[in-house]
C-alpha cells in the first residue's frame, strides 16, 4: 500500500518529466495548467495519468482539477483508497 506522501512524490515526478520542469519547483498548490508550456503538454500529462494509473476515467476527472494537490487527492482516493 502506498502512503499519501509517496503518491504526492509520484505525481510531482510525472509532471516534472512530462513538462520538463524542475521537480523542486513543483508544490502541492501549483496550478497544473500554469506549469504546462501549452495545451499539447497538458494533454500528454492527462494521457500519462490514464496510462500510469491504468484508470480510464483519469483524463476526464483530472482535466477538471486545478492543483497538484487536487490530482494527488483524487488518485490517492480512487486508485489506492488512501486519504490524507
Amino acid at each position: 500500500m502506498k502512503s499519501y506522501d509517496e503518491i504526492v512524490s509520484e505525481v510531482k515526478e510525472l509532471i516534472a518529466l512530462k513538462f520538463n520542469f524542475p521537480l523542486e519547483e513543483i508544490q502541492p498548490s501549483s496550478n497544473i495548467s500554469t506549469l504546462a508550456k501549452d495545451s499539447i503538454q497538458l494533454f500528454e500529462l492527462l494521457l500519462s495519468f490514464e496510462q500510469y494509473y491504468q484508470m480510464e476515467a483519469a483524463y476526464e476527472d483530472v482535466v477538471q482539477m486545478h492543483t497538484v494537490e487536487d490530482v494527488t487527492k483524487y488518485l490517492a482516493k480512487n486508485k489506492y483508497g488512501v486519504t490524507q
Binding site: 495545451s39 499539447i40 497538458l42 494533454f43 483524463y59 482535466v63 477538471q64
Partner: peptide
C-alpha cells in the same frame, strides 16, 4: 488537426475538458 480541434474546443468554451 490539433489546431482545428483546439480552436473548436475553445469555441464551445470547454478546452481540453472535452477529449479531442
Amino acid at each position: 488537426v490539433w489546431s482545428l480541434k483546439e480552436a473548436y474546443l475553445k469555441a464551445i468554451k470547454q478546452g481540453l475538458r472535452v477529449h479531442p
